[in-house]
Amino acid sequence: MKFTIRVNGVEHTREVEPRLLLSDFLRHEIGLTGTHVGCEHGVCGACTILWDGAPVRSCLAFAVQAEGHEIRTVEGLAPGPGQLNPLQQAFRDAHGLQCGYCTPGILMTMTAFLEENPKPDEAQVREALSGNLCRCTGYQHIVDAVLLASQA
């Protein structure tokens, strides 16, 4: 079926099967491969995107359901080509990523979190992070990065 979706402010119209997962649509239909897939059962958080501003798992929604909603992905964070936004910069400064596979999902979760909690403490950051799995970093530098971003 044909539908239209807005991602990072850009409209895309595509003909898809209703069963196409939003994660697959973003990655393989419109080439936004920054959103990663780690489990396809809603646990790892790698596929987290913003749906009308709120973080959700894109592997647990069908693409066609997103019609009429505003979707934001990691590609929509940087202010311009070749640039980093303050949260992304903080991740670099604090070494908040290793393989970087979990990172886009974490950036999206933390973007929404920091909007609601601009000055969190470490415990709040860890709580908010707990729905995103990272296998490389042991989380410490991610926590540092989020705290760093919140001090900017």
Binding site: W51, V56, R57
Partner: peptide
């Protein structure tokens, strides 16, 4: 119950 990303939907 799960995490905010799940509870948001």
């Amino acid at each position: 119950v799960a995490h905010p990303q799940i509870r948001n939907r």
